[in-house]
Design a protein around this nucleic acid. Structure first.
Length: 862
RNA sequence: GCCGCUGUGGCGAAAUGGCAGACGCAACGGACUUAAAAUCCGUUGGGCUUAACGGCCCGUGCCGGUUCGAGUCCGGCCAGCGGUACCA
């Protein structure tokens, strides 16, 4: 295939400018205290979700968000901001370790190679990152502070009085280990045999691992856990004021899953009622309808509440459930199962004796692991009651009903179930009350009679924080006599041992246990062999970017105050990334941020002020890009054909940033044509085939029409960048170019304005053309990146005359051109006098005339 | 099941309640060229009508409502995508 002729010499000018930017450190962001720091400028922190450097390299999906942030970064610089725009690597993680197991190549080598590849790709797209701030989570200089933060968490507790994390020294109880924000517990965890590790709930999807889709089983193990549930309420409340997509906020809120209700105590037992079972319910108003009770099979109370007679059946059921994986348990969700324990509980509100069952539809991990079953008003209880012929009693009705001479106290099954609100019936204490009032009154009664209390529960569970992997941060913890203790800060960073054999042991013992020398700490003490999950590094990288070289602190105070603080809401001003991190990363990072804030290390309670999710880019065939379909596009291939500027502009021109959209090479070509037209506005080829400045360029005033287009373009591009509507900003610049392409004489000032507007989108071509113009015409000192962003003048947008549309009954019928300042009455008269209007309204009465100045006249005729 | 998002030309998409389809792709016609590519100029939602200028009707997933006027607001459906799933 013959060499395709380039529409303009991007293959030469793009590398030229990329080299120049590097040499001039053009996008370095000085920190407070540095000599070239300008404190008079406002700060702007614009951040990408940093990538995991996989072996496959970038595909065109990654740079979509990166291009958007780069446009913002370059735009904010032109508007006179100090811009923090960094990039780094989420370098710990499973794939590098899996690769190491397969090939024997150390994960650090794999990671280094992959980072190099990613960096080459990013640099070739011309992103204006401050590469002097590059960080890698696998770098000891970085994870030293990840480990340090873990120690802060370990050494704190959540004080319910102040609702804040506080140093563990402020805890006055007997057993500090029971309240630490990082604690060890033997819990049923998600064990993935294939990966040889436990996983967080968030990493398990439909009973399979998120990475690799391997089966996951429940298994009790001793694990490190972070007490994120202590922050559940704040994680919900403090989410509210953030400028995030409502969908993402909702997702987080649902994940945290706040439920308001009450705890109710039931006396319970086999013969007498010596025991006590507490349940959580969101519908205390239905207490009279509780006709039986269900415990989770794993609930320890089951032992004591089972009669000798029922014990064999109960044990059999419990074993049957325990043998099931989570997947099987949810698969069988449709058919209810359970067994009677033989025990009974006493309903505190009416003294009724109700049977206690166990069933796997009650989960040990939510609420108290026990429920009061109200079959008439809960779908699951209803289904269960029907299957096992348990009584169903209606206690909520659509309309109030007299308690006098009404239903029998324990009605026959109505065979219907409603979860809707209504009015209490068959409930002497609250009869006739609407659900909300009935609920409050019942809670009051429970509290007054010491049968229960108001309560709030969350779906969110504590964060399982340890992994049995090699390629992650070791815990800065040692064990002595079966007790954990923190390493001194001076021992940080604690690097993983240089292992050759990374394979999981298969027993659940972490690979680090194989490093016998490393394991020994001092005397009888030995190191913790678990490592942290991949999330750890990404929980705080945005903080490190503020001050990546600091050896004294995780981030210098002044740098943190400047970049993460500020008069306004503070934090990262704009954070762009994929929806896949809507709950996990964003929740974990917010949690750590709050702990560090409470402990006085940070300025603001929230890390990310404004969040935007870019949509996925599909292949040309409309399918998700994947090796399987062979529809993956490599940015470097696109750049080789059309250049980095065309690549960037196309990524933005495709459609709205947040929308999912398919790739189109033809589309890239169209945008490339646009850039070539910009080029030829100013350049032409001479006889020798060299590009020289065009003869059409002149230092002349703009025509009225040109002025209008130019100012309209300044206005639209500015507003659209602020709104992240990059596709329409580019459209407007195309309109500008179309307008000036036809002009025989092209005013230099207008072209310079265009180049500044275009610079954030297409930085290379705009830099080159700016430089070329400066060689012949005065007034273009400095690079285009050093100019001031233009302001539009509204005076140039106003026309003397305006076209008015004339509607009859809302339908367009005619148009007239009138002076801008015409009086409404005159406009109305003019419209009514139009021959067309007279014709179409003949024989009808004109009921009304709506006049919208500068827009339209609508004549209502009947 | 529940929650959320999205439905507009052949395609990607525009449109503070006020001319639906800006801008781009594709297609078609023209100029330039020996020719092609590239470039430049033009046409391009569908239908009917006119010799022509032009004119008329229909059209933003479906049904209804609010309004002088609805792609846009409200109510009810349908479809696609995403999340979640016994959370008491």
């Amino acid at each position: 295939m013959s060499e395709r002729r380039k529409p303009y010499p991007f293959d030469q000018l793009e590398p030229k400018w990329q080299t120049l930017w590097d040499e001039r450190r053009a996008f370095r962001a000085p920190n407070p205290g540095e000599p070239d720091f300008d404190s008079t400028k406002p700060k702007f922190y614009v951040l990408d979700m940093f990538p995991y450097p996989s072996g496959a390299g970038l595909h065109v999906g990654h740079p979509e968000g990166y291009t958007a942030t780069d446009i913002i970064a370059r735009y904010k610089r032109l508007r006179g901001c100090n811009v923090l725009h960094p990039m780094g690597w989420d370098a710990f993680g499973l794939p590098a370790e899996q690769y190491a197991i397969k090939t024997g190549q150390h994960p650090s080598i794999t990671t280094r190679d992959n980072v190099a590849k990613f960096k080459t790709q990013l640099k070739r797209i011309g992103f204006s990152y401050d590469w002097e701030r590059e960080i890698s989570t696998a770098d000891p200089k970085y994870f030293r502070w990840t480990q340090w933060i873990f120690l802060q968490i370990y050494n704190s507790w959540f004080n319910p009085e102040t609702r804040r994390a506080e140093p563990i020294t402020s805890y006055t109880g007997d057993d500090p280990d029971s309240v630490r924000l990082a604690y060890v517990a033997e819990v049923a965890v998600n064990w993935c045999p294939e990966l040889g590790t436990v996983l967080a709930n968030e990493e398990v999807i439909d009973g399979k691992s998120e990475v690799g889709s391997f089966p996951v089983v429940k298994r009790p193990m001793r694990q490190w856990i972070l007490r994120i549930t202590a922050f559940a309420e704040r994680l919900i409340d403090e989410l509210e004021p953030l400028d995030w997509p409502t969908g993402i906020k909702l997702l987080q809120r649902n994940w945290i899953g706040r439920s308001e209700g009450a705890e109710v105590n039931f006396a319970a037992g086999v013969d007498d009622s010596s025991d006590n079972v507490t349940v959580f319910t969101t519908r205390p108003d239905t207490l009279y309808g509780a006709t039986y009770m269900v415990l989770a099979p794993e609930n320890p109370l089951v032992e004591r509440l089972t009669t000798a007679e029922q014990r064999p059946a109960v044990e059999q059921y419990r074993q049957q459930i325990a043998a099931k994986s989570d997947l099987e348990r949810t698969d069988l969700a449709k058919e209810k199962s359970g067994i009677f324990t033989g025990g009974f509980a006493m309903n505190p509100v009416n003294g009724e004796r109700i049977p206690i069952w166990i069933a796997d539809y009650v989960l040990m991990s939510y609420g108290t692991g026990a429920i009061m079953a109200v079959p008439a008003h809960d779908e699951r209880d209803f289904e269960f009651a029907q299957k096992f012929h348990l009584p169903i009693r209606e206690v909520v009705a659509a309309a109030p009903r007299s308690s006098e001479g009404g239903e029998a106290p324990c009605s026959l099954p109505p065979l219907v179930c409603t979860t809707d609100d209504g009015f209490a019936v068959n409930s002497p204490l609250i009869d006739g009350l609407p659900t909300a009032a009935a609920t409050s009154k019942m809670i009051e009664w429970l509290e007054q009679n010491a049968h229960g209390r108001r309560d709030v529960r969350y779906k969110l569970r504590d964060w399982l924080f340890s992994r049995q992997r090699y390629w992650g941060e070791p815990f800065p913890i040692v064990w002595r006599d079966g007790k954990h203790e923190a390493l001194p800060e001076s021992d940080l960073p604690l690097e993983p041992p240089p292992l050759d054999d990374f394979k999981p042991t298969g027993t659940g013992e972490p690979p680090l246990a194989k490093a016998k020398d490393w394991l020994r700490y001092s005397g009888a003490a030995s190191r913790e062999t678990n490592t942290m999950p991949q999330w750890a590094g990404s929980c705080w990288y945005y903080l490190r970017f503020c001050d990546p070289g600091n050896d004294e602190r995780l981030v210098g105070e002044a740098a943190e105050r400047y970049w993460m603080g500020g008069d306004q809401a503070g934090g990262v001003d704009l954070y762009i990334g994929g929806t896949e991190h809507a709950v996990l990363h964003l929740l974990y990072a917010r949690f750590w941020h709050k702990v560090l804030f409470d402990l006085g290390h940070l300025s603001k309670t929230e890390p990310f002020q404004r969040l935007v999710n870019q949509g996925m880019i599909l292949g040309e065939d409309g399918r998700k890009m994947s090796k399987r379909w062979g529809n993956v596009i490599d940015p470097l291939d696109v750049i080789a054909l059309y250049g980095a500027d065309a690549f960037r502009c196309y990524e933005m021109f495709m459609g709205p940033l947040e929308q999912m959209k398919p790739w189109s090479m033809k589309g890239v070509e169209g945008v490339s044509r646009f850039l070539a037209r910009v080029w030829r506005l100013m350049m032409e080829e001479n006889q020798a085939g060299d590009w020289i400045l065009s003869d059409h360029l002149q230092e002349i005033a703009l025509e009225k029409r040109q002025l209008r287009v130019m100012h309209a373009t300044i206005k639209k591009v500015t507003e659209d960048i602020e709104a992240l509507s990059f596709n329409t900003a580019i459209s407007q610049m195309m309109v500008f170019v179309n307008e000036f392409t036809g002009a025989a004489a092209r005013p230099v000032s207008a072209l310079r304005t265009l180049l500044i507007l275009l610079n954030p989108f297409a930085p290379h071509i705009s830099s080159e053309l700016w430089e070329a113009l400066a060689q012949k015409f005065p007034g273009g000192e400095g690079d285009v990146t050093q100019q001031d962003w233009p302001e539009h003048d509204p005076a140039h947008l106003i026309e003397d005359e305006v076209e008015i549309i004339i509607q009859i009954n809302g339908k367009l019928r005619d148009k007239i051109v009138v002076p801008l300042d015409i009086a409404e009455e005159d406009l109305k008269a003019l419209a009514l006098a139009r021959p067309k209007v007279i014709e179409l309204t003949a024989g009808k009465a004109i009921a009304k005339v709506v006049v919208v100045p500068k827009k339209l006249v609508n004549i209502v005729a009947r």
